[in-house]
Design a binder for these strands. Structure first.
Lengths: 141, 141
DNA sequence: GTACAATCTCTAGCGACTAGAGGAGCAAGA
DNA sequence: TCTTGCTCCTCTAGTCGCTAGAGATTGTAC
């Protein structure tokens, strides 16, 4: 029943690298597992689930602190999921604002590149734009 | 003519914080300036230009290593600006790919939030989605 | 003279890992 | 049984671009 696996197997099962698993244990995202006689970590099915949850949340861009809260909430099935919803919405806001900021940068960098006439650096519009902020499309950055 | 200023004045003129200026000197983006008798840094007009260039490039998201190259190129007016153009295009590619990645995340997180019925955590679709990657719209993350 | 502001150097911290050193354990083949 | 080679262990330090703080010195205004 209790078929325990080594850290390498857990790594292969979840796609999370071995040092990262140990790191997660160090920061308290994963509980310290039991050890073998030879002091090796032994993981069961629960660890697989928890680590997959962590990995997926990280892939979706959640920060470790948010994941810590989500894991905590996931263990209290009776509670309202309002907090979960709030965490997800907060994360969505952060993604959206990063996209907005990057899009503004993109426009600026594109216009800089378009202005480049491929001549000498002395007349390079890219260097010029970098030197003089006032040449920018938008001043707010 | 040679009206030199202290680091605080340079900071105010460029909008770059004092510790950041010292940091830039430490990593070689700014040359070590001359010092006063009391060992304080003294900056001239060239430092203002160079620091403004750095600041602007950072605001546009260029990495320090790229800025180092750009500064280097800016000092060789006779050279072709092909390299400058390449650096800017590379940066644009990185911005674009970050936007794409974030947009994919946004879609995923949005759909997760929409599925939430605001009930108990036991039935929370957000927790559920995080637990089971296969519930995702796209599997490639 | 005496506050107080500005500057100096140095070290450590952020987030989320990643890389490497140096050593021990373990399974399979000769 | 021995050896080879893989996996695992702990610990430290590095990544990037700063930022924060300690503790000392210098400059300035009253």
């Amino acid at each position: 029943m209790t078929d325990l696996m080594a850290i390498g197997d857990l790594s292969r099962k979840t796609g999370v690298k071995v040092p990262t698993i140990r790191y997660y244990e160090g920061i308290g995202l994963l509980p310290p597992p039991p050890r073998s006689e030879g002091n090796r970590r032994l993981y069961g099915a629960k660890a697989v689930d928890r680590l997959r949850f962590i990995r997926h949340a990280r892939e979706l861009g959640f920060e470790v602190e948010a994941i810590r809260e989500l894991l905590d909430l996931a263990e209290q099935p009776q509670r309202s999921c309002a907090k979960v919803d709030a965490l997800a919405r907060e994360h969505l806001r952060s993604i959206t604002s990063r996209i907005e900021r990057l899009t503004a940068l993109k426009v600026e960098v594109e216009s800089m590149i378009k202005a480049c006439a491929k001549g000498r650096i002395a007349k390079c519009r890219i260097i010029d734009t970098l030197s003089h902020h006032e040449h920018c499309l938008h001043a707010e950055h």
